[in-house]
């Protein structure tokens, strides 16, 4: 089943209330044929569990890894993925679009 934004934000709240380290990733800008619209969310916990998506599955791995750092140091980050970026190409936004993802901690 595809999770809706309602499920994702409710999950973020439930995880944080359960005392888990939680980060919320949001697509804040897209260019070209980005797979998920602006405003799409991905919620990640300290153990790398996640729900939702910010791409068609292409860059989730990289976002989840970065979320671990966000949870650890409590500082938000903005990540960019796209074909123009060598590193990003390695994680594979192969549709040709570019996306900007804001990753922030959920503070209890």
């Amino acid at each position: 089943m595809i999770s809706t934004d309602t499920d994702i934000l409710a999950t973020a709240e439930a995880w944080a209330k359960a005392g888990r380290g939680v980060a919320l990733a949001t697509v804040v800008e897209t260019w070209g044929s980005a797979p998920r619209p602006v405003g799409s969310h991905l919620v990640i916990d300290g153990e790398g569990n996640f729900l939702g998506s910010v791409s068609g599955g292409c860059v989730e791995g990289a976002v989840v890894a970065e979320a671990g750092d966000v949870i650890a140091d409590g500082k938000p980050r903005t990540l960019e993925f796209g074909v123009a970026d060598e590193t990003a190409w390695q994680v594979g936004l192969s549709c040709g679009g570019r996306i900007k993802v804001y990753v922030e901690p959920v503070r209890a």
């Binding site: 934000l9 919320l24 922030e104 901690p105």
Partner: peptide
């Protein structure tokens, strides 16, 4: 995001 803000939003 503060948890209280997230709770209000939900």
């Amino acid at each position: 995001m503060d948890l209280s803000l997230l709770s209000t939003l939900n």
